[in-house]
Design a protein around this nucleic acid. Structure first.
Ligand code: SF4
Ligand code: SF4
Lengths: 136, 136
DNA sequence: AACTAAAAAGACTATATGTATCCTTTTAGG
DNA sequence: CCTAAAAGGATACATATAGTCTTTTTAGTT
């Protein structure tokens, strides 16, 4: 239950790799994919999503590739995960407006709200900077 | 992401309903299903799982039905959810032995461990007793 | 013993989601 | 204009989800 998909996992690997590179180092998708052991075509789709929302910057053509969109200390794991997996929804009643007509009186409903809050809070508390294997 | 399935949702509804009934009141599956608005055939499967692990007691034949296996204050939401959805696994590296060869050096790994811990802790902190709409 | 009520068990179906791959198009540099 | 690289779109396949249906077992009733 509650398992991150490959897409999410690959997304994190890919962007963490970028975060570990010098801020102005343009990386080839094929290099990133190879380094983090992800199918390149799949990673391409993921990075397209990142690019659309500015999490990464992309450059086409010769000499193109990817760059981190912002400083690694300003990108949280929550953002990365939600970018590709959508919002953290432990149960469908936590969306607004609630998708369950029982949410008004249901005692379980607030529990899922708490779960959502805790997960978001853990993920929001981690930045890409902390996730690289660089010591500075 | 991380969404409870219908099965899990229905499981909770069903067992919370049981928990709200007198401890010795044998309930028909069909009644439970109607009360909590779940397809009876689906709920049957769920209660079979509950029955196997003793979360509910079942009686066949005339006058049969279901009873809560233990006192509602001794059954946590975590147990109920894990009974039908399996363990809380936010990412596959949190199982033991770890299913990812990167888990040794990966900085993301401990984050998923934390997520798992938080979710489990929230769910383990809620008992069926607190989830009924009865005030005593 | 026969009948009936009810859960257990197993097979089956349909739909949605996940996990990719491939091909074509756009963009940019040399 | 040729080549490198990302973007976009279509497609294929596998797995999981959500449920139904039928048959079997068990237990009480008449
Ligand atoms: S937990 Fe309660 S409010 Fe949420 S989906 Fe289930 S019944 Fe509805
Ligand atoms: S978070 Fe790290 S250890 Fe866990 S699956 Fe991803 S790479 Fe492996």
């Amino acid at each position: 239950m509650m398992e991150l998909t490959r897409k999410g996992e690959y997304a994190i690997r890919g962007i963490v790799y970028l975060a570990g590179k010098p801020i102005d180092k343009v990386c080839l998708l094929s290099d990133i994919a190879a380094a983090v052991d992800v199918p390149p075509t799949f990673l391409a789709k993921i990075f397209q999503q990142f690019s659309k929302i500015g999490l990464v910057k992309s450059f086409r053509g010769t000499g193109g590739g990817f760059l981190l969109g912002r400083a690694p200390e300003n990108i949280t794991l929550l953002e990365v995960v939600e970018a590709v997996e959508g919002p953290i929804i432990p149960n469908r009643c936590v969306v607004s407006p609630p998708e369950c007509e029982r949410s008004g009186f249901c005692k379980v409903h607030p529990v899922w709200k708490r779960v959502q809050g805790e997960v978001r809070s853990v993920l929001a508390g981690v930045t890409l900077k902390e996730l690289t294997n660089k010591e500075h």
